[in-house]
Design a protein around this nucleic acid. Structure first.
Length: 578
RNA sequence: GCCCCCGUAGCUCAGCUGGAUAGAGCGCCGGACUUCUAAUCCGAUGGUCGCAGGUUCGAAUCCUGCCGGGGGCACCA
């Protein structure tokens, strides 16, 4: 074993840092630590601080190329004024002095890669660091935790949620879980568009059907409207507006239960658009009297000189802030546009103290992005603090051809249909294992047929396998601390599994920073595969010597924990048995 | 016309803030169940990374142009 005091990187030799307590070792097995050592070795050579943003510690494509490789020699060659291979060689020598026996040897390869070969003790120590982190392994990597508000789904309350909403729901929910685990303070909201003409139309449609008439032109048809007839009692005379309001209440309740079944974590707040038009006692306007949030936002924009009147309407100068043209806030007929409500909503969110707002929108809203960003900026917000994530569409495929999703044509797959047909886990995996930036083709018949082959079950199976194994083991082995002597030699599959586990914090950080939960799905599959290979190659229960069994149980336990975490981040279940 | 997304194996998709011989799942073909869960495993097949230039030691990745697919360009929501 290396002496610890030779391994502490001394970035500033003149500053005496307190030695770490013997029982609180630095996370020697962590990749951050390894990167630090590489950077330190490079700095020692170059004699100045090096930019490590560009350098990367990677897993080489083939095992013969070592456990890890770094491109530091290539990236820093210019700064060091050395040929890349020569620099890599010297960094390797420095690293060898720092890591001592933990590094078996190194090789310089290709144009200047430094390939690093680590010994078994390094891997065992790495596993210990994973175990020591416990449930927090991979958590809390956020640089500076912020109050983040994610608004997602926000389906119009005029009909059922379709597969597009399902994708939005799965994504927004997973992103929320991911950011929270990463260390952000996450809130979730659903924006209910319960104002405007569409709700009136909905009321009129229900009225018409209740009275045996045809719904009005551009009204709502179909079974779904029939299911809302409970909003009006037999013989009762109510206005279309009132009826529309009642229908919204019913639909929102339906959406809540559908989302809960889809395992979407509860929203902190359901924001009704209509409330943004109501006078809020605590919100004082220019005149010193209470105003509505919409009026408040418009006043602010007027004060900043960002509005003007033209053709009877009130306009916002969004074209000054990157939009193609100016946009109307108040129409000539005196009604507010949807845009005005949305501005008020975003302003309220900011005033409520959210430092970052993430809106998850459908692809059909992408043209809306520049004006919203402009408005946010016009109100004094930092445009970088408003993220509008555009989800690409889910295309319905029937008989190998794309079909338009249309309520009238019956080509309409709802969130509930999807859950009923293939289940929550398969549906979520299907929607979350792909980037939100790519369109998805959904052939429901095919999805049903293939649902049993969904890779999600492979991941869950690995989890269940470990669970069942650990139940058998727990009676006679203590493994959590991994206190025994290191086993004689690790199997390649054991070393590989350790390295895949070590990747997890990095994967979480990447997925969170890039708003890309699908990376977690890819990682979960890779981890399950590595575990299965390990399970195939290494007998766990009863392995000899005892320290080998202890290590393998520890490895299994750590894997189970990370699998469960990855599944949870995607809102998937982690069954104990299958 | 302008803007956004996509084009990678038979299919569905990863990889895209530049790294080594481009990956996975499914499908297809051949094999493995008295052994810790066979919802598994092993092997085989499978690619002009849409096309053409450019930048670079190095391009699926960055830049430009083109082709193809999808979506959006309201005093609708």
């Amino acid at each position: 074993m290396q002496r610890r005091d030779t391994e502490v990187p001394q970035r500033d030799p003149s500053h005496q840092e307190p030695k770490p307590a013997p029982h609180q070792p630095l996370p020697e097995g962590s990749l951050d630590r390894l990167e630090e050592e590489i950077a330190a070795a490079a700095e020692e050579l170059i004699g100045e601080a090096v930019g490590t943003e560009q350098t990367a510690l990677a897993r080489p494509p083939r095992p013969e190329l070592g456990d890890y490789s770094t491109n530091a020699g290539l990236i820093l060659a210019r700064q060091a004024r050395l040929p890349p291979r020569q620099l890599a060689q010297q960094i390797g020598e420095g690293l060898q002095r720092r890591l001592g026996g933990r590094m078996l040897h190194f090789e310089v390869a290709g144009p200047g890669f430094l390939n690093i070969f680590l010994d078994d003790a390094w891997h065992v120590q790495a596993l210990r660091s994973v175990l020591a982190a416990g449930e927090r392994f991979g958590a809390g990597g956020a640089q500076r935790p912020q109050r983040v508000l994610i608004e997602f789904v926000s389906a119009n309350p005029t009909g059922p949620m379709h597969v597009g909403h399902a994708r939005n729901a799965a994504y927004g929910d997973a992103l929320g879980r991911l950011l929270a685990f990463h260390g952000e303070h996450v809130s979730r909201e659903f924006y209910v568009n319960d104002a405007g003409s569409q709700i009136l139309k909905l009321g009129e449609s229900i009225q018409a059907i209740a009275e045996g008439r045809e719904p009005p032109e551009h009204g709502y048809h179909g079974e779904y409207v029939h299911s809302l007839l409970g909003a009006v009692a037999a013989g009762e005379r109510v206005s279309a507006a009132e009826l529309g309001g009642r229908a919204v209440a019913i639909i929102v309740e339906k959406m809540k239960s559908s989302l809960a079944r889809f395992r979407v974590l509860d929203y902190e707040h359901w924001q009704y658009e209509s409330e943004l038009h109501e006078v809020q006692p605590q919100l004082l306007g220019r005149e010193g009297t209470p105003v509505s949030p919409v009026a408040h936002a418009i006043e602010l924009l007027e004060q900043k000189g960002m509005t003007y009147r033209s053709e009877g309407a009130l306009w916002l100068r969004t074209s000054q802030l990157g939009d193609d043209k100016d946009r109307v806030l108040v129409r000539a007929n005196g009604e507010h546009t949807y845009f005005a409500s949305d501005i008020a909503y975003h302003q309220r969110k900011r005033e409520r103290g959210f430092e970052r707002q993430i809106d998850v929108w459908g692809a059909d809203h992408h043209g809306y992005v520049p004006r919203m960003r402009a408005a946010y900026q016009a109100l004094g917000g930092d445009p970088d603090h408003l993220e509008m994530i555009i989800m690409q569409l889910v295309h319905l495929v029937r008989d190998g051809r794309r079909a338009q999703m249309s309520k009238r044509a019956g080509e309409f797959v709802t969130l509930d249909d999807l859950v009923q047909e293939i289940g929550v886990d398969a549906a979520r995996w299907y929607l979350l294992s792909r980037s939100h930036e790519t369109t998805i083709d959904l052939d429901l018949d095919l999805a049903v047929k293939q649902s049993s082959e969904n890779p999600v079950y492979y991941v869950q199976y690995a989890h269940a396998r470990i669970a069942s194994m650990l139940v058998k083991a727990s009676a006679h082995v203590r493994f959590q601390a991994l206190e025994g002597p290191d086993p004689p030699a690790l199997h390649p599959s054991e070393r590989d599994l350790v390295k895949v586990l070590l990747q997890f914090p990095h994967e979480v950080a990447e997925a969170a920073d890039r708003r890309a939960p699908h990376r977690i799905a890819a990682y979960a599959l890779e981890l399950a595969q590595s575990f299965t290979a390990f399970y195939r190659d290494c007998r766990v229960l009863g392995a000899q010597p005892a320290c080998a069994e202890e290590l393998r149980l520890a490895l299994s336990s750590a894997t189970q924990r990370v699998l469960a975490r990855a599944l949870d981040l995607l809102g998937l279940s982690a069954p104990e048995s299958m």
